[in-house]
């Protein structure tokens, strides 16, 4: 039996489409974990990246923190957090957020730094307030890069959120963990396929957001 057969039989089994362990339920859980972690990471990474990028300060400290964040293994962190905090949502969210903050933070900072300084100078010279310069002059131009940072964070969360299953939570990781335990490779491959599809859908969503949110003057099309 090859992989395609696994995929085929996993998805054609109607039992996999119903109940608490059905595809819609697991997919819903997975999307919820992803959104929660992404929103938390964005709530941390975006403001810090925007402000440090605007003032051009703290770039070194920032890349240090980001490198440290990247160096932490998500799975190890999960085990550690669960040991410390017990089972629950929090021990899962912490590694996911720590995974997602660095790309958001670093890309946002870099995006703001790479904005042409002359419109900013012109805006300041015409008496525009700093906050308005940040949001109305720099952000619209930095947006494509900022979105690409969010996108890679989202993709990483989608694939890493599978670890939730190791600590008895749901999500698509369930199929992989259970499948491995039960030596049910059909389930493992099915789960992995769903994760991959979700990652592709995420890519498509970000593409659509960039199409609508980025000005044609910046896209140059």
């Amino acid at each position: 039996m090859n992989v395609l057969n696994f995929v085929n039989s996993f998805f054609s089994d109607s039992a996999h489409w119903h109940g608490y362990d059905g595809i819609p339920a697991r997919l819903g859980e997975h999307v919820r974990y992803t959104l929660q972690a992404l929103l938390l990471a964005a709530a941390i990474g975006l403001p810090i990246g925007l402000v440090t990028g605007h003032y051009g300060r703290g770039g070194n400290a920032l890349s240090l923190v980001a490198t440290a964040g990247r160096a932490l293994p998500s799975f190890g962190l999960l085990v550690l957090m669960t040991t410390l905090l017990g089972f629950g949502m929090l021990p899962v969210m912490i590694p996911l957020v720590i995974l997602a903050v660095p790309p958001i933070l670093v890309t946002t900072y870099e995006a703001m730094r790479s904005v042409d300084p002359s419109p900013v100078d012109a805006a300041r010279g015409m008496g525009m307030h700093e906050s308005r310069i940040l949001f109305q002059v720099e952000l619209p131009v930095a947006l494509p890069l900022i979105l690409s940072g969010l996108r890679s964070a989202a993709i990483q969360i989608v694939s890493t959120a599978t670890i939730a299953a190791y600590v008895s939570l749901g999500g698509l990781g369930r199929y992989i963990v259970d499948g491995l335990y039960q030596r049910n490779y059909e389930k493992v491959v099915g789960g992995a396929t769903l994760v991959a599809v979700l990652a592709l859908v995420t890519l498509a969503l970000f593409w659509a957001v960039a199409r609508t949110a980025v000005s044609p003057g910046v896209r140059r099309r």
Partner: peptide, 18 residues
């Protein structure tokens, strides 16, 4: 003060998203 003075710079400094 700045709003009472027009300011023009070398590369125009236009807002490319507008």
């Amino acid at each position: 003060l700045r709003r009472s003075m027009g300011y023009v710079i070398q590369n125009a400094g236009l807002f490319q998203h507008r």
